[in-house]
């Protein structure tokens, strides 16, 4: 172990030069960006699916079945496999699409499935009578959703949604296999350039931790804070 330590001390000044630090910062930003965009779009699409699944109109029954099929399917396929399918489906159609964009599409597909389940649990936690009260006051469906149901669902939606985002920060590591220059890919580059894997991947682990841990804490805090109260 003595030699490993000596090697780390020797390499450290070169590793932590300003060029490498900037490169790491960009990679971290890409990891965070893919997660943020994927989860935001996934939330909106997931909300749409959840509302669809909660609808009662008979004409929407086939759409409800498709929504269930989508959610159940995408929650049972490894993210890596989804990445492969999306990559090879998009590249022939859009040869100019960037790898980051393609990976983000794959993230959106998956996050829609997971977040729709989370949102659905939230919407279902609001008593039906709240909707009836809105209905007799002549609220339309959209107004009832955004002014009555959704504001009361946040306490059920937010903690697992944040936990999901934490999971996704880590899962985006798989996009490195496609060549997306995010954190994990940055680590591989350092190791290929001859830096010690302990230093290269060690730094990457620390950076992931720095992105993920505050969010985990936020999730745990929200879970405690939001549990009892229903009003903001």
């Amino acid at each position: 172990m003595g030699t490993l330590w000596e090697r780390l001390v020797l390499e450290a000044p070169e590793f932590f030069n300003s060029y490498n630090l900037l490169f790491l910062a960009e990679a971290a930003a890409r990891t965070l960006g893919m997660t943020a965009i994927g989860c935001s779009i996934g939330f909106v699409a997931g909300l749409a699916l959840a509302v669809l699944r909660g609808s009662r109109a008979a004409t929407l029954a086939p759409a409800r079945w498709l929504a269930v099929l989508y959610v159940e399917t995408f929650r049972r396929i490894p993210f890596l496999v989804i990445l492969f399918v999306v990559l090879y489906a998009i590249q022939p159609l859009f040869p100019d699409a960037s790898l980051t964009a393609i990976a983000t599409v794959a993230i959106c597909l998956l996050s829609t499935a997971y977040l729709s389940e989370i949102v659905r649990a939230g919407l279902e936690s609001v008593p039906r009578q709240q909707l009836e009260a809105a209905e007799v006051l002549n609220f339309g469906p959209a107004r009832a959703l955004f002014q009555v149901v959704l504001p009361q669902s946040w306490r059920v939606i937010l903690p697992p949604a944040v936990a999901f985002a934490v999971m996704f920060i880590k899962d985006t590591a798989l996009a490195s296999h496609m060549g997306v220059v995010e954190l994990t890919f940055a680590g591989k580059i350092f190791v290929e350039r001859g830096f010690s894997p302990v230093l290269g991947f060690g730094a990457i682990l620390v950076l992931y931790f720095a992105l993920s841990w505050p969010l985990s804490r936020l999730g745990a805090y929200l879970e405690k804070r939001l549990a009892p109260a229903r009003h903001p």
């Binding site: 172990m1 490993l4 934490v166 920060i169 880590k170 899962d171 590591a173 798989l174 490195s176 954190l183 994990t184 680590g187 591989k188 190791v191 010690s196 894997p197 302990v198 290269g200 991947f201 060690g202 990457i204 682990l205 992931y208 931790f209 993920s212 841990w213 985990s216």
Partner: peptide
Amino acid sequence: FTNTPALVQVFFLYYALPDA
């Protein structure tokens, strides 16, 4: 371990163990 990717954890082992 719950705040870092499993992939990078395995990478770390995969490349660092031979070094050690």
